[in-house]
Design a protein around this nucleic acid. Structure first.
Lengths: 195, 195
DNA sequence: TTTTTATTTGACATTTTTGTCAAACAAATT
DNA sequence: AATTTGTTTGACAAAAATGTCAAATAAAAA
């Protein structure tokens, strides 16, 4: 899959990410990852000590990537509506590169001591909530608890991706048709949340 | 846990459901289930042959329960808006009884040969989609692909439940506050999807 | 009561996955 | 060139989970 050879450690990480988030193999073993990376399984332990800590690092890198992109939008001076539009775009892109990333998060959201919600994230979220509140007070959005606005935004974009296999079966859609629907949703979501 | 003693087989089933869907222990072992049901693990194999087939039956029962309730609404002669309101109510109740049921579905949605979307479900979905279309043509809802309407409905209700632990952390909410938000959402979702 | 059938368990075997260690190998340092 | 350091592997051990079987027990049928 054309993973660049920038040191064995990084190659293992990238392979793990690909298997988990792109291929959606939620139960991949260290052997699966080692095989796909073309190294011995022992190396996974050498570099990462244990599966748990490997997965932990995979998470952190993925979250850091996403945070970086989202924060740049959130903290920018762009008009609010534009921010939201970019937000949606970022999620749509993620859905193409790593369609199973959120599924993976759901799977581990309870079990793990997943500290991938740090203090920093909470602070940045709070700032964004204040911006939403300001838009409401300015009469641009319907008045509600700003948390609902954020939940709605995430939900409308992410849920169809997470439930993709189910939706495809229940609505009898093929890959092309589903992709088309997701594309349509970008504009639809925008309209929906700005009433 | 007050699970009625209606034969050992059913008790094991109910216990499994409770552990998976109510307690959210996605990785519970047969031993965990047997212990909680107060029987030897061998009995799980005696009645269900294998874990896979136990889980399969747990799924089918859960889906059958939900389908029963949803279909009764879908196929009723109630006005459309009322149907949707009941729909939302059913999901809210499910979220209380089995907060992790959907999380479990997400986890297994890819892996399993999960045939819990049968022909019957597809047919009933199609009928509901036609009703939605009729409402759009009557000018009660904004024109769009009816699939989007259904996706929106599910997404707005279910996603916050699935991501509950994450939302609680990121928004610094306790159980009571979260429950309150979900309660608020019922009316909010109704308003949102009917523009 | 005897016999058959169904239920239940403990002990054991198998499978799957993970973790460790010594030794081989390569690269860098002295 | 010799030595130290870092990388890689195969072989082995341990852990975790599932599955099987014969025997004990209880319940039903004869």
């Amino acid at each position: 899959m054309a993973i660049r050879d920038k040191g064995t450690e990084q190659r293992i990480m990238d392979t793990a990410k690909h298997i988990f988030f792109a291929e959606g193999k939620l139960n991949a073993t260290t052997q699966d990852i080692a095989d796909a990376a073309g190294v011995s399984r022992t190396l996974v332990n050498y570099y990462f000590r244990s599966v748990d800590s490997l997965i932990d690092r995979v998470y952190r890198e993925a979250m850091a990537d996403l945070s970086l992109r989202l924060d740049k939008v959130m903290e920018s001076d762009a008009p609010f509506k534009e921010k939201v539009a970019i937000f949606i775009e970022v999620f749509a892109e993620l859905a193409i590169k790593y369609p199973y990333q959120e599924t993976f998060v759901v799977k581990d959201i309870n079990t793990a001591d997943n500290a991938f919600t740090d203090e920093d994230r909470q602070v940045k979220t709070e700032i964004f909530l204040k911006q939403i509140k300001a838009e409401m007070d300015a009469g641009h959005i319907e008045q509600m608890n700003p948390i609902h606005f954020m939940m709605n935004l995430f939900a409308l974009m992410s849920y169809p991706m997470i439930m993709r296999p189910m939706f495809m079966r229940i609505f009898k859609l093929d890959n092309e048709q589903f992709k088309q629907l997701i594309e349509e949703r970008k504009a639809l979501i925008f309209k929906t949340i700005f009433r």
